[in-house]
Amino acid sequence: MGSVRTNRYSIVSSEEDGMKLATMAVANGFGNGKSKVHTRQQCRSRFVKKDGHCNVQFINVGEKGQRYLADIFTTCVDIRWRWMLVIFCLAFVLSWLFFGCVFWLIALLHGDLDTDYKDDDDKSKVSKACVSEVNSFTAAFLFSIETQTTIGYGFRCVTDECPIAVFMVVFQSIVGCIIDAFIIGAVMAKMAKPKKRNETLVFSHNAVIAMRDGKLCLMWRVGNLRKSHLVEAHVRAQLLKSRITSEGEYIPLDQIDINVGFDSGIDRIFLVSPITIVHEIDEDSPLYDLSKQDIDNADFEIVVILEGMVEATAMTTQCRSSYLANEILWGHRYEPVLFEEKHYYKVDYSRFHKTYEVPNTPLCSARDLAEKKYILSNANSFCYENEVALTSKEEEEDSENGVPESTSTDSPPGIDLHNQASVPLEPRPLRRESEIGSRR
Protein backbone atom coordinates (compact mmCIF):
# COMPACT_ATOMS: atom_id res chain seq x y z
CA MET A 1 0.00 0.00 0.00
CA GLY A 2 2.81 2.37 0.81
CA SER A 3 4.44 1.97 -2.59
CA VAL A 4 1.15 2.49 -4.39
CA ARG A 5 0.44 5.62 -2.41
CA THR A 6 3.86 7.02 -3.14
CA ASN A 7 3.42 6.40 -6.87
CA ARG A 8 0.00 7.99 -6.85
CA TYR A 9 1.13 11.06 -4.98
CA SER A 10 4.29 11.65 -6.98
CA ILE A 11 4.04 15.29 -8.00
CA VAL A 12 7.24 16.00 -9.88
CA SER A 13 7.45 13.94 -13.04
CA SER A 14 10.92 12.63 -13.66
CA GLU A 15 12.80 12.77 -16.94
CA GLU A 16 12.42 8.99 -17.21
CA ASP A 17 8.63 9.36 -17.08
CA GLY A 18 8.79 11.98 -19.83
CA MET A 19 10.92 9.72 -22.03
CA LYS A 20 8.61 6.80 -21.29
CA LEU A 21 5.61 8.84 -22.35
CA ALA A 22 7.29 9.98 -25.55
CA THR A 23 8.26 6.38 -26.36
CA MET A 24 4.70 5.24 -25.76
CA ALA A 25 3.34 7.92 -28.08
CA VAL A 26 5.63 6.87 -30.93
CA ALA A 27 5.00 3.17 -30.39
CA ASN A 28 1.24 3.65 -30.46
CA GLY A 29 1.32 5.72 -33.63
CA PHE A 30 0.62 9.08 -32.00
CA GLY A 31 4.06 10.59 -32.50
CA ASN A 32 2.91 13.04 -35.18
CA GLY A 33 4.46 16.10 -33.61
CA LYS A 34 1.16 17.38 -32.22
CA SER A 35 1.30 15.57 -28.90
CA LYS A 36 2.71 17.58 -26.05
CA VAL A 37 4.77 16.10 -23.26
CA HIS A 38 4.92 18.30 -20.18
CA THR A 39 8.31 18.42 -18.54
CA ARG A 40 9.69 20.57 -15.78
CA GLN A 41 10.77 23.23 -18.25
CA GLN A 42 7.31 23.40 -19.88
CA CYS A 43 4.51 24.09 -17.41
CA ARG A 44 0.98 23.22 -18.40
CA SER A 45 -1.70 25.83 -18.79
CA ARG A 46 -3.76 26.80 -15.78
CA PHE A 47 -6.85 24.59 -15.56
CA VAL A 48 -8.82 26.98 -13.33
CA LYS A 49 -8.11 30.67 -13.71
CA LYS A 50 -7.68 32.98 -10.75
CA ASP A 51 -11.17 34.40 -11.32
CA GLY A 52 -12.67 30.91 -11.08
CA HIS A 53 -13.40 30.31 -14.76
CA CYS A 54 -12.32 26.93 -16.10
CA ASN A 55 -9.83 27.16 -18.94
CA VAL A 56 -11.59 24.51 -21.03
CA GLN A 57 -12.95 24.56 -24.57
CA PHE A 58 -15.28 21.88 -25.95
CA ILE A 59 -14.79 20.80 -29.54
CA ASN A 60 -16.40 18.22 -31.83
CA VAL A 61 -19.55 17.98 -29.70
CA GLY A 62 -22.12 15.96 -31.61
CA GLU A 63 -25.64 17.43 -31.94
CA LYS A 64 -24.67 20.41 -29.83
CA GLY A 65 -27.49 22.61 -31.12
CA GLN A 66 -30.16 19.99 -30.50
CA ARG A 67 -28.90 19.32 -26.99
CA TYR A 68 -28.91 23.01 -26.13
CA LEU A 69 -32.39 23.52 -27.58
CA ALA A 70 -33.68 20.53 -25.63
CA ASP A 71 -32.71 22.43 -22.47
CA ILE A 72 -33.75 25.84 -23.76
CA PHE A 73 -34.45 27.32 -20.33
CA THR A 74 -30.94 26.60 -19.01
CA THR A 75 -29.54 27.87 -22.30
CA CYS A 76 -31.39 31.16 -21.91
CA VAL A 77 -30.24 31.50 -18.31
CA ASP A 78 -26.59 30.82 -19.16
CA ILE A 79 -26.25 33.04 -22.24
CA ARG A 80 -25.09 36.64 -22.06
CA TRP A 81 -27.51 39.47 -21.41
CA ARG A 82 -27.14 40.87 -24.93
CA TRP A 83 -28.37 37.60 -26.43
CA MET A 84 -31.07 37.37 -23.80
CA LEU A 85 -32.34 40.79 -24.90
CA VAL A 86 -32.28 39.68 -28.55
CA ILE A 87 -34.31 36.55 -27.73
CA PHE A 88 -36.69 38.66 -25.64
CA CYS A 89 -37.39 41.04 -28.52
CA LEU A 90 -37.51 38.36 -31.22
CA ALA A 91 -39.98 36.24 -29.25
CA PHE A 92 -42.54 39.04 -29.17
CA VAL A 93 -41.92 40.45 -32.64
CA LEU A 94 -42.10 37.04 -34.32
CA SER A 95 -45.29 36.13 -32.46
CA TRP A 96 -46.88 39.44 -33.50
CA LEU A 97 -45.83 38.88 -37.10
CA PHE A 98 -47.07 35.29 -37.13
CA PHE A 99 -50.53 36.09 -35.83
CA GLY A 100 -50.66 39.24 -37.96
CA CYS A 101 -50.13 37.05 -41.01
CA VAL A 102 -52.84 34.67 -39.78
CA PHE A 103 -55.40 37.46 -39.37
CA TRP A 104 -54.40 38.92 -42.73
CA LEU A 105 -54.95 35.53 -44.40
CA ILE A 106 -58.34 35.19 -42.69
CA ALA A 107 -59.34 38.62 -43.96
CA LEU A 108 -58.00 37.82 -47.41
CA LEU A 109 -59.87 34.52 -47.71
CA HIS A 110 -63.06 36.07 -46.36
CA GLY A 111 -62.86 38.98 -48.79
CA ASP A 112 -62.51 41.67 -46.16
CA LEU A 113 -59.59 43.32 -47.96
CA ASP A 114 -61.84 44.28 -50.90
CA THR A 115 -64.15 46.38 -48.71
CA ASP A 116 -63.38 50.03 -48.06
CA TYR A 117 -64.96 51.00 -44.78
CA LYS A 118 -63.86 54.61 -44.94
CA ASP A 119 -66.48 55.56 -47.55
CA ASP A 120 -69.08 52.97 -46.66
CA ASP A 121 -71.39 53.53 -43.67
CA ASP A 122 -73.30 50.32 -44.10
CA LYS A 123 -72.91 48.60 -40.76
CA SER A 124 -74.21 45.37 -42.22
CA LYS A 125 -70.95 45.09 -44.19
CA VAL A 126 -68.98 45.69 -41.05
CA SER A 127 -70.77 42.90 -39.26
CA LYS A 128 -69.89 40.52 -42.08
CA ALA A 129 -66.14 41.11 -41.67
CA CYS A 130 -64.17 38.60 -39.60
CA VAL A 131 -62.17 41.40 -37.97
CA SER A 132 -63.50 44.89 -38.31
CA GLU A 133 -61.20 47.64 -39.59
CA VAL A 134 -58.67 45.08 -40.83
CA ASN A 135 -58.30 45.67 -44.57
CA SER A 136 -54.50 45.48 -44.93
CA PHE A 137 -51.49 43.65 -43.57
CA THR A 138 -50.51 46.66 -41.45
CA ALA A 139 -53.96 46.71 -39.86
CA ALA A 140 -53.75 42.96 -39.23
CA PHE A 141 -50.30 43.38 -37.62
CA LEU A 142 -51.59 46.17 -35.36
CA PHE A 143 -54.59 44.04 -34.39
CA SER A 144 -52.19 41.21 -33.48
CA ILE A 145 -50.21 43.55 -31.20
CA GLU A 146 -53.39 44.87 -29.57
CA THR A 147 -54.64 41.33 -28.94
CA GLN A 148 -51.45 39.94 -27.40
CA THR A 149 -50.63 43.00 -25.31
CA THR A 150 -54.31 43.63 -24.40
CA ILE A 151 -54.02 47.27 -25.42
CA GLY A 152 -57.49 47.43 -26.99
CA TYR A 153 -57.73 50.81 -28.71
CA GLY A 154 -61.30 49.99 -29.79
CA PHE A 155 -61.15 50.49 -33.57
CA ARG A 156 -60.36 46.88 -34.45
CA CYS A 157 -62.22 43.94 -32.99
CA VAL A 158 -63.08 40.38 -33.92
CA THR A 159 -66.67 39.51 -34.83
CA ASP A 160 -68.69 36.32 -34.64
CA GLU A 161 -68.72 36.05 -38.42
CA CYS A 162 -65.67 33.73 -38.52
CA PRO A 163 -65.17 31.12 -35.79
CA ILE A 164 -61.57 30.67 -36.92
CA ALA A 165 -60.86 34.33 -36.13
CA VAL A 166 -62.35 33.93 -32.66
CA PHE A 167 -60.24 30.81 -32.09
CA MET A 168 -57.05 32.60 -33.19
CA VAL A 169 -57.72 35.47 -30.78
CA VAL A 170 -58.05 33.00 -27.90
CA PHE A 171 -55.01 31.03 -29.06
CA GLN A 172 -52.85 34.16 -29.36
CA SER A 173 -53.83 35.25 -25.85
CA ILE A 174 -52.69 31.88 -24.46
CA VAL A 175 -49.44 31.95 -26.46
CA GLY A 176 -48.76 35.49 -25.25
CA CYS A 177 -49.16 34.41 -21.62
CA ILE A 178 -46.78 31.50 -22.17
CA ILE A 179 -44.15 33.75 -23.76
CA ASP A 180 -44.49 36.27 -20.93
CA ALA A 181 -44.11 33.57 -18.29
CA PHE A 182 -41.08 32.01 -20.00
CA ILE A 183 -39.26 35.28 -20.63
CA ILE A 184 -39.98 36.72 -17.19
CA GLY A 185 -38.97 33.45 -15.53
CA ALA A 186 -35.71 33.27 -17.47
CA VAL A 187 -34.87 36.90 -16.73
CA MET A 188 -35.63 36.51 -13.03
CA ALA A 189 -33.63 33.28 -12.83
CA LYS A 190 -30.72 34.98 -14.56
CA MET A 191 -30.89 37.97 -12.23
CA ALA A 192 -31.12 35.75 -9.15
CA LYS A 193 -28.12 33.60 -10.10
CA PRO A 194 -25.61 33.61 -7.25
CA LYS A 195 -22.77 33.88 -9.76
CA LYS A 196 -22.21 37.57 -9.06
CA ARG A 197 -21.94 36.80 -5.34
CA ASN A 198 -18.49 35.43 -6.15
CA GLU A 199 -17.31 38.96 -6.89
CA THR A 200 -17.36 39.65 -3.15
CA LEU A 201 -15.64 36.39 -2.17
CA VAL A 202 -11.87 36.56 -2.46
CA PHE A 203 -8.92 34.22 -2.21
CA SER A 204 -5.38 35.29 -1.42
CA HIS A 205 -3.08 35.71 -4.40
CA ASN A 206 -0.58 33.21 -3.00
CA ALA A 207 -0.71 30.12 -0.84
CA VAL A 208 1.93 29.61 1.84
CA ILE A 209 3.67 26.71 3.54
CA ALA A 210 4.82 27.22 7.11
CA MET A 211 4.94 25.54 10.49
CA ARG A 212 1.77 25.46 12.57
CA ASP A 213 1.49 23.48 15.79
CA GLY A 214 4.75 21.72 15.03
CA LYS A 215 3.75 20.50 11.57
CA LEU A 216 4.23 21.78 8.05
CA CYS A 217 0.95 23.13 6.71
CA LEU A 218 -0.28 24.44 3.40
CA MET A 219 -2.41 27.53 3.97
CA TRP A 220 -4.44 29.99 1.95
CA ARG A 221 -6.79 32.76 2.94
CA VAL A 222 -10.43 33.40 2.06
CA GLY A 223 -12.51 36.48 2.75
CA ASN A 224 -16.05 37.80 2.42
CA LEU A 225 -16.35 41.45 1.40
CA ARG A 226 -20.05 41.66 2.27
CA LYS A 227 -21.62 41.86 5.69
CA SER A 228 -24.25 39.33 4.64
CA HIS A 229 -23.19 35.83 5.62
CA LEU A 230 -22.52 32.79 3.49
CA VAL A 231 -24.69 30.10 5.06
CA GLU A 232 -23.22 26.59 5.47
CA ALA A 233 -19.91 27.72 4.00
CA HIS A 234 -17.36 24.98 3.50
CA VAL A 235 -14.12 24.59 1.58
CA ARG A 236 -12.61 21.89 -0.60
CA ALA A 237 -9.31 21.54 -2.42
CA GLN A 238 -7.89 19.28 -5.10
CA LEU A 239 -4.46 18.81 -6.55
CA LEU A 240 -4.29 18.43 -10.33
CA LYS A 241 -1.30 16.84 -11.97
CA SER A 242 -0.42 14.45 -14.73
CA ARG A 243 0.75 10.95 -13.95
CA ILE A 244 1.44 7.61 -15.57
CA THR A 245 -0.19 4.51 -14.10
CA SER A 246 1.64 1.28 -13.46
CA GLU A 247 0.06 -0.05 -16.67
CA GLY A 248 1.54 2.80 -18.70
CA GLU A 249 -1.66 4.82 -19.07
CA TYR A 250 -1.10 8.59 -19.17
CA ILE A 251 -3.60 10.65 -17.18
CA PRO A 252 -3.22 14.34 -18.09
CA LEU A 253 -5.15 15.68 -15.10
CA ASP A 254 -5.33 13.38 -12.12
CA GLN A 255 -7.50 14.85 -9.36
CA ILE A 256 -6.36 14.20 -5.80
CA ASP A 257 -8.37 15.42 -2.83
CA ILE A 258 -6.57 17.58 -0.30
CA ASN A 259 -7.85 17.15 3.23
CA VAL A 260 -8.86 20.44 4.84
CA GLY A 261 -10.66 18.90 7.79
CA PHE A 262 -13.60 17.09 6.24
CA ASP A 263 -13.44 14.21 8.72
CA SER A 264 -13.30 16.48 11.75
CA GLY A 265 -15.77 19.03 10.37
CA ILE A 266 -13.43 22.02 10.41
CA ASP A 267 -13.88 22.42 6.66
CA ARG A 268 -17.11 24.26 7.55
CA ILE A 269 -16.26 27.85 8.32
CA PHE A 270 -17.97 30.91 9.76
CA LEU A 271 -16.88 33.44 7.17
CA VAL A 272 -17.44 36.75 8.93
CA SER A 273 -13.81 37.85 8.81
CA PRO A 274 -10.98 36.49 6.63
CA ILE A 275 -9.99 32.97 7.61
CA THR A 276 -6.83 31.02 6.88
CA ILE A 277 -7.60 27.53 5.58
CA VAL A 278 -5.08 24.97 6.79
CA HIS A 279 -4.09 21.68 5.18
CA GLU A 280 -1.84 19.65 7.42
CA ILE A 281 0.86 17.96 5.35
CA ASP A 282 0.75 14.48 6.86
CA GLU A 283 1.37 11.01 5.46
CA ASP A 284 -1.95 11.11 3.57
CA SER A 285 -1.13 14.41 1.88
CA PRO A 286 0.06 14.51 -1.74
CA LEU A 287 2.67 17.05 -0.60
CA TYR A 288 4.16 14.77 2.04
CA ASP A 289 7.36 13.96 0.14
CA LEU A 290 7.99 17.42 -1.29
CA SER A 291 10.63 19.79 -0.01
CA LYS A 292 11.01 23.45 -0.88
CA GLN A 293 13.23 22.60 -3.83
CA ASP A 294 10.71 20.05 -5.07
CA ILE A 295 7.92 22.63 -4.87
CA ASP A 296 10.01 25.12 -6.85
CA ASN A 297 10.54 22.58 -9.64
CA ALA A 298 7.10 20.97 -9.52
CA ASP A 299 4.37 21.23 -12.13
CA PHE A 300 0.97 20.92 -10.52
CA GLU A 301 -2.06 23.01 -9.69
CA ILE A 302 -4.09 23.24 -6.50
CA VAL A 303 -7.74 24.12 -7.07
CA VAL A 304 -9.51 25.61 -4.05
CA ILE A 305 -13.30 25.78 -3.82
CA LEU A 306 -15.55 27.70 -1.45
CA GLU A 307 -19.24 26.74 -1.40
CA GLY A 308 -22.17 28.08 0.52
CA MET A 309 -25.71 29.42 0.32
CA VAL A 310 -26.40 33.08 -0.34
CA GLU A 311 -28.23 34.47 2.65
CA ALA A 312 -30.63 36.60 0.58
CA THR A 313 -31.77 33.92 -1.88
CA ALA A 314 -30.78 30.60 -0.23
CA MET A 315 -29.18 29.59 -3.54
CA THR A 316 -25.89 27.72 -3.54
CA THR A 317 -22.87 29.54 -4.89
CA GLN A 318 -19.40 28.25 -5.61
CA CYS A 319 -16.27 30.37 -5.72
CA ARG A 320 -13.10 28.90 -7.22
CA SER A 321 -9.46 29.78 -7.59
CA SER A 322 -6.19 27.95 -8.06
CA TYR A 323 -2.53 28.07 -7.14
CA LEU A 324 0.31 26.89 -9.32
CA ALA A 325 3.47 25.54 -7.75
CA ASN A 326 5.27 28.85 -8.28
CA GLU A 327 2.46 30.65 -6.43
CA ILE A 328 3.12 28.74 -3.20
CA LEU A 329 5.45 30.68 -0.89
CA TRP A 330 7.51 28.41 1.32
CA GLY A 331 8.31 29.79 4.76
CA HIS A 332 5.78 32.63 4.68
CA ARG A 333 2.80 33.60 6.78
CA TYR A 334 -0.07 35.99 6.18
CA GLU A 335 -0.10 39.36 7.82
CA PRO A 336 -2.83 39.87 10.42
CA VAL A 337 -5.98 41.53 9.11
CA LEU A 338 -8.24 41.37 12.18
CA PHE A 339 -7.70 44.04 14.80
CA GLU A 340 -9.49 44.34 18.11
CA GLU A 341 -10.75 47.82 18.86
CA LYS A 342 -12.54 49.05 21.95
CA HIS A 343 -16.07 47.96 21.08
CA TYR A 344 -15.68 46.08 17.82
CA TYR A 345 -13.31 44.22 15.51
CA LYS A 346 -11.79 45.87 12.47
CA VAL A 347 -10.73 44.06 9.28
CA ASP A 348 -8.03 45.69 7.17
CA TYR A 349 -8.28 44.24 3.66
CA SER A 350 -5.19 46.14 2.51
CA ARG A 351 -3.20 43.39 4.29
CA PHE A 352 -5.27 40.52 2.92
CA HIS A 353 -2.78 39.39 0.26
CA LYS A 354 0.40 40.40 2.09
CA THR A 355 2.77 37.85 3.61
CA TYR A 356 5.95 38.00 5.64
CA GLU A 357 8.84 35.55 5.70
CA VAL A 358 9.31 33.36 8.75
CA PRO A 359 12.98 32.53 9.39
CA ASN A 360 14.13 29.00 10.21
CA THR A 361 11.20 27.35 8.47
CA PRO A 362 12.32 23.80 7.60
CA LEU A 363 13.21 23.40 3.94
CA CYS A 364 12.85 19.63 4.00
CA SER A 365 9.76 17.61 3.26
CA ALA A 366 7.16 16.75 5.85
CA ARG A 367 8.31 13.12 5.72
CA ASP A 368 11.88 14.07 6.63
CA LEU A 369 10.54 16.30 9.36
CA ALA A 370 8.42 13.48 10.79
CA GLU A 371 11.35 11.06 10.65
CA LYS A 372 13.52 13.51 12.62
CA LYS A 373 15.90 14.01 9.71
CA TYR A 374 15.65 17.74 10.28
CA ILE A 375 16.16 19.30 13.70
CA LEU A 376 13.76 22.10 14.44
CA SER A 377 14.93 25.27 16.09
CA ASN A 378 13.96 26.11 19.61
CA ALA A 379 10.29 26.97 19.98
CA ASN A 380 11.19 30.28 21.60
CA SER A 381 13.44 31.03 18.65
CA PHE A 382 10.64 30.47 16.21
CA CYS A 383 8.21 32.63 18.19
CA TYR A 384 10.82 35.33 18.66
CA GLU A 385 11.72 35.52 14.99
CA ASN A 386 8.07 35.46 14.10
CA GLU A 387 7.59 38.51 16.32
CA VAL A 388 10.66 40.19 14.86
CA ALA A 389 9.28 39.77 11.36
CA LEU A 390 6.01 41.44 12.34
CA THR A 391 7.80 44.18 14.27
CA SER A 392 10.05 44.99 11.32
CA LYS A 393 6.97 45.26 9.13
CA GLU A 394 5.46 47.77 11.52
CA GLU A 395 8.70 49.73 11.68
CA GLU A 396 8.81 49.96 7.90
CA GLU A 397 5.25 51.24 7.83
CA ASP A 398 6.00 53.73 10.61
CA SER A 399 9.04 55.02 8.73
CA GLU A 400 6.94 55.46 5.61
CA ASN A 401 4.39 57.42 7.64
CA GLY A 402 7.10 59.73 8.99
CA VAL A 403 7.40 58.31 12.51
CA PRO A 404 10.88 58.98 14.01
CA GLU A 405 13.14 55.97 14.16
CA SER A 406 13.83 56.57 17.84
CA THR A 407 10.31 55.39 18.65
CA SER A 408 10.83 52.00 17.04
CA THR A 409 11.65 48.88 19.03
CA ASP A 410 15.08 48.19 17.58
CA SER A 411 17.38 45.80 19.34
CA PRO A 412 20.52 47.16 20.98
CA PRO A 413 23.49 47.40 18.61
CA GLY A 414 25.87 44.52 18.47
CA ILE A 415 23.32 41.88 19.47
CA ASP A 416 22.51 39.14 16.99
CA LEU A 417 18.81 38.39 17.03
CA HIS A 418 19.28 34.81 15.86
CA ASN A 419 21.87 34.09 18.53
CA GLN A 420 19.62 35.67 21.11
CA ALA A 421 16.82 33.31 20.16
CA SER A 422 18.14 30.47 22.33
CA VAL A 423 17.67 32.57 25.48
CA PRO A 424 14.26 32.10 27.13
CA LEU A 425 12.09 35.05 26.32
CA GLU A 426 9.13 36.59 28.01
CA PRO A 427 5.92 36.37 25.98
CA ARG A 428 5.41 39.47 23.86
CA PRO A 429 1.76 39.73 22.82
CA LEU A 430 0.94 41.88 19.84
CA ARG A 431 0.06 45.38 20.86
CA ARG A 432 -3.36 45.57 19.26
CA GLU A 433 -3.74 42.82 16.75
CA SER A 434 -4.60 39.18 16.67
CA GLU A 435 -5.13 36.90 13.76
CA ILE A 436 -8.04 34.53 13.79
CA GLY A 437 -7.28 31.48 11.67
CA SER A 438 -8.67 28.03 11.44
CA ARG A 439 -7.26 25.89 14.26
CA ARG A 440 -6.81 22.27 13.99
Rank of each mutant, 00 (worst) to 15 (best):
M315Y: 08
R212D: 06
Q66F: 13
I209D: 00
I11T: 11
E385S: 04
V126P: 05
Q57K: 12
F141A: 13
S434H: 12
G223R: 14
D112T: 02
E340N: 10
E335G: 03
D368F: 04
A70G: 10
T6D: 14
H38C: 08
R351W: 12
L218K: 00
A207K: 01
F137I: 04
C319T: 13
G18N: 08
K34F: 07
P427Y: 08
E307P: 01
N380M: 06
T74F: 04
I328D: 00
S377A: 12
C54H: 13
S13W: 05
K195E: 06
G18H: 07
P359F: 03
L376N: 12
V260H: 03
R5S: 12
R243H: 08
T276H: 07
R82K: 04
C319Y: 10
F137L: 06
E301L: 02
A27C: 05
S95H: 02
R268S: 11
K354W: 05
K125A: 14
G29K: 08
F141Y: 12
P163C: 03
F270R: 04
L240N: 04
I375E: 14
F171T: 04
F155D: 08
T159S: 12
P413I: 13
S204L: 01
P194C: 03
S264G: 05
A237N: 00
V126M: 11
P412Y: 07
F92C: 14
R428I: 04
K190N: 07
R197S: 11
N206C: 05
M188R: 08
C177D: 08
E385H: 03
S381L: 05
A70P: 08
L142H: 01
G52C: 01
V48F: 10
Y349C: 13
A27G: 14
I295A: 06
E133S: 09
P412V: 08
C43G: 13
I275W: 11
S10I: 04
D410K: 05
K372N: 13
E357G: 06
C54T: 10
N55T: 12
E371N: 09
V278L: 10
F262M: 12
K49F: 03
Y349H: 13
D160L: 01
Y345A: 07
Y356T: 15
R333H: 07
H229E: 07
N198G: 14
P427L: 03
S264Y: 10
T200C: 14
K342F: 05
K36G: 10
R268T: 11
I209H: 01
K64R: 10
V260K: 02
N259A: 07
T147R: 04
H418N: 13
D180L: 14
Q148E: 04
V175E: 03
N32M: 07
V310S: 13
H343F: 04
R5I: 09
S246W: 06
G185W: 03
G52N: 00
I184W: 05
S127V: 15
N360E: 15
R5F: 05
V4A: 08
H229S: 11
Y250S: 15
C319G: 04
N60D: 09
T159Q: 06
V77H: 08
S422I: 10
T159G: 01
F30S: 08
T150D: 04
Y153I: 03
L376G: 09
A165Y: 01
C319H: 15
P429E: 14
N259Y: 06
S273Q: 13
R351I: 15
E395T: 10
A189L: 15
V388N: 15
D180T: 15
M309R: 12
Y345H: 14
A370R: 11
R221E: 00
P424K: 08
F58Y: 12
D296K: 04
G402R: 08
F92G: 05
V175I: 12
I59N: 15
A233L: 06
F300M: 06
A298T: 09
N401K: 08
Y68L: 10
S377R: 09
I266Y: 13
I305T: 08
Y323H: 01
S242M: 15
D119C: 01
E426C: 06
K393D: 14
E335C: 05
A207I: 00
S273R: 11
A389E: 14
V260W: 00
C364R: 02
N326G: 11
R333W: 13
N224V: 04
F339A: 14
N378W: 03
P359K: 09
D368C: 05
C89Y: 02
V61Y: 10
L240T: 08
S3C: 02
A140Y: 02
S14Q: 09
E327S: 00
F99D: 00
V126Q: 07
V131L: 14
I277E: 01
D289C: 07
P404K: 10
R82V: 15
C162E: 01
L216A: 01
Y288C: 01
K195M: 05
A325L: 00
G176Q: 14
C76H: 08
N60G: 10
S136H: 03
I145S: 03
K118T: 02
S377I: 07
E63K: 15
D289F: 04
F300S: 02
S14H: 06
I415F: 09
L109P: 02
T39K: 10
T159F: 01
D267E: 04
S273T: 10
S411Q: 11
N401W: 06
V169L: 11
H229A: 11
N401H: 07
D116V: 15
Y356C: 15
D294E: 05
A389H: 15
R367C: 02
D398E: 08
H53S: 08
A70C: 13
W104R: 00
E311A: 13
H343T: 11
T200I: 07
T276Q: 10
V77F: 14
H353P: 01
V12E: 15
R428M: 14
V102L: 06
I11S: 15
L216Q: 02
L240P: 01
P286G: 01
G52Q: 02
E433Q: 12
M191P: 12
T313K: 07
P286F: 02
